[in-house]
Amino acid sequence: MSEKNKNSWNEGAAAYSAFLHSENFMKNIIQEPAKAFHSTTWEMIHKFVPDMKGKKICVPSSGDNHAVFAFAMLGAEVTSCDISENQLANAERVAKKYGWEKSITFICQDTMKLDGLPENSFDFVYTSNGVHVWIDDLPGMYRNIYRIMKHGGTYIMYEIHPFHRPFDEALKVVKPYDMTGPFESESEITFAWRVMDLMNAILDAGLSIKHMEEMFAEKDYNWPFWISYADIAKGVTATKEEVDHMHDWRNNPMAALPNWISVAAKK
Rank of each mutant, 00 (worst) to 15 (best):
S208D: 07
K97T: 11
M52E: 05
Q87Y: 15
A230P: 00
H132E: 01
F106V: 03
Y158L: 09
F69N: 03
F183Y: 12
M149N: 03
E214M: 07
M215T: 12
G130K: 06
V133M: 02
P162H: 06
N7P: 02
W193R: 02
A18L: 08
A230S: 14
S187R: 15
W260V: 12
P60E: 00
A205S: 15
M112P: 04
E241N: 08
V68P: 01
E169L: 11
D115P: 04
V174H: 01
W193L: 06
H245E: 07
V49L: 13
A230T: 09
S17C: 11
D248R: 13
A89F: 01
C108G: 08
N222W: 11
F37M: 05
M52T: 08
V125K: 02
G181A: 06
Y177F: 13
L198I: 15
S208Q: 13
A36R: 03
A15M: 12
N10S: 10
E3K: 14
E169Q: 11
S61E: 04
E43D: 13
K234C: 09
S39T: 14
T127K: 03
A238Q: 10
K219L: 09
Q87H: 15
I83Q: 00
A15W: 01
D51Q: 13
F19T: 09
T239Q: 04
A67L: 03
G130T: 02
E186H: 13
D51F: 07
T237G: 07
A238T: 03
K172M: 05
R250G: 12
V78G: 02
W260G: 00
Q31E: 12
G235Q: 05
A256K: 15
S8D: 06
E218H: 09
V195P: 08
F167M: 07
L20K: 08
G75L: 07
F106A: 04
N120S: 13
K150F: 06
E218C: 11
Y98A: 00
E242K: 15
H38A: 05
L114P: 02
N120M: 07
N144I: 08
H245T: 08
E214Q: 14
F19A: 07
V78C: 04
G130R: 01
E101W: 09
L88E: 03
T239L: 07
P253Q: 03
